[in-house]
Design a binder for these strands. Structure first.
Lengths: 221, 221
DNA sequence: GTCTATATTTAGATAGAC
DNA sequence: GTCTATCTAAATATAGAC
């Protein structure tokens, strides 16, 4: 018999909870910068203010720790765009989704970066998830988008590609934040500036989908 | 006196050229998968069919080798969109650029991935390049885009963000190719299928910019 | 239950043989 | 000029002390 995928909900002591939280937080930073292979358990331990061996005591192997971090990410990931129907308005659903993803990119860029580096290396850990759960997730949303198109609520766009566009655009602001800041000539962005970027992106997406909300898309020749 | 940034154009022998080429090719694959820190010189050597020490003999340190790979990427990168003026047609320039970047994403995804992983970790090697050369590159293109907007050739969009959108969208097909294939339910894409994706993306970009080329953007309400 | 001390492997790099 | 043999440091992981 193999170990259950989901860890048993054992009630943990105070020290254990505290140490695990510190290690997980440190691991997110390290994995985000250097990926799975490039991250050492000693770097995680140092950042967490602990001894290297403590990381192994609380999480077993480096891969076990990595898997827990990845599981956290994938859970938080698809909280939005959860329940949409053909009756919803694409303008509202799409702007809400872009806003939520952009918010996530600003608040937890490390999580987006860890996912990115996992996919960069060919997603050895996540490939089953991508090919099954995420595939299904995309198909069900794509069906709704297709219905919107049939109803004339938006332009005819390949729904799967549209979802990929949304991921590419929103996650880019987390994964490539260093480059974004550099080419914008800034050291950091205020909440206001980031909100402005978000609005501009939503505008671009809606116009691209043929959903004009205000005085946009007036330059069509 | 320090070493010159550009290596002196020493004429190399046959063996040296051959070994260096094999190492560089292997290094691209390894760096693309595991990033700078996650890649070992022994993994590169093994993939190149050489001994680990030979890598150090021909390239000195791992970082020297990495810098050469990065330099190759940045040179190939900005070959397109080189000379554009306010007199050009945005529809033509933008579709040409997207097509070129998509072609690059298909032919050399490893190079895009290496750039991505460098930026993911905060671009310690490239930050000067990003803040100076690439910043200037973006500014000069942004000026042209601004001129297009003033001439009414396209919708009013923040030009810097538009460039970022183009990068995000096109590079995503290289960096996240594993995920793209997974959610599309395919093992690989034929040239035809990839050409179709490229056309769809160009369509999305042009419509988003308020440049209707054919029967697109007709669903504007 | 927690952490220190230690074992084993692999990393990057170089001195010296060919 | 090229490559083999070797050195030192850092990696993952665990056995055993507290």
């Amino acid at each position: 018999m193999t170990k259950p995928v989901q860890a048993a909900p054992v009630k943990m002591g105070r020290i254990r909870l505290k140490r695990r939280a510190a290690i997980l937080a440190a691991a997110e930073q390290e994995f985000a910068c250097n990926g799975f292979k490039g991250t050492s358990t000693s770097a995680i331990a140092e950042r967490a203010g602990l001894a290297k061996a403590q990381v192994h005591y609380y999480f077993g192997s480096k891969e076990d720790l990595y898997q827990e971090v990845l599981a956290t990410i994938m859970n938080q990931w698809n909280l939005t765009l959860e329940d949409i129907t053909a009756d919803d308005e694409p303008a509202e659903v799409l702007s809400r989704y872009v806003r939520a993803k952009m918010h996530f990119s600003r608040e937890r860029p490390e999580l987006s970066k860890i996912f990115a580096s996992e996919v960069l290396r060919g997603a050895p850990i996540l490939q089953t998830y991508l090919g099954k759960q995420q595939y299904e997730w995309v198909q069900s949303r794509a069906a709704v988008i297709r219905a919107w198109v049939e109803q004339g609520k938006m332009r005819r766009i390949d729904p799967v590609q549209l979802i990929i566009y949304l991921w590419a655009l929103t996650q880019h602001y987390a994964d490539f934040n260093t480059q974004v800041l550099a080419v914008m000539g800034k050291d950091c962005l205020t909440d206001e500036e980031y909100g402005e970027l978000t609005d501009q992106l939503i505008d671009m997406v809606l116009v691209g989908c043929g959903i004009a909300t205000r005085d946009t898309s007036t330059h069509v020749r």
